[in-house]
Design a protein around this nucleic acid. Sequence first.
DNA 1: TCGAAGATTGTCT
DNA 2: GACAATCTTCGAG
Length: 204
Amino acid sequence: MGRILPRNFYDRETEVVARDLLGAVLETATPHGRTSGMIVETEAYIGEHDAACHAAAGRTQRTEPLYGKPGLAYVYFIYGVHWCVNAVTRREGLPSAVLIRALEPLDGVELMRTRRGTRARDTDLTNGPGKLCAALGIDGSMNGLSLQHRPIAIREGESIPAEKIETTARIGITRAADWQLRYLVRGNPWVSRTPKALRNAPPE
DNA sequence: TCGAAGATTGTCT
DNA sequence: GACAATCTTCGAG
């Protein structure tokens, strides 16, 4: 098992952290057991000037973790149904975070299947932010926790070569939708499917 | 295989 | 009261 990523890993530009998190291993340990997966897709959300970032609404009770120290977990509830997990970063004074969008399952696949429902196919277990939270048992109780120890942590994993990393526009947002801040491992079967809306995204 | 629409609740205007 | 960093189901092609 790789070492747990140190706090200063997160204390860099958010885009760099988002790219470097590809290949790292997210793991959770609850009374039900241990589950882990390799991160294959991320998105960067950068400060109050980023209209798609929750911090654009300013410092509120909800966004409080974004203003905390790098290396914290920011977990929020969306659409009345799903949880999504972020790693808080720091780009000099900006409330920023990296959304974990997809994982390739490693340990505890059976437990993931139990939590997700037995009908889910292997590749449907963790290929989306809401899905991976369900599979790993992540919910609001983990909001604001450190990513350096149980019940939730991120470890050093594979190093992904630059030519395998693809950059696209972010998904599922309406504001600043053309910013190229989504990072994914090209060709990995667990990456969430790209909506058609991305087709007219400007290359730069 | 693809596109459209509903679910459901916390948060902010 | 509107809307959201999503997922699932359902119907058409």
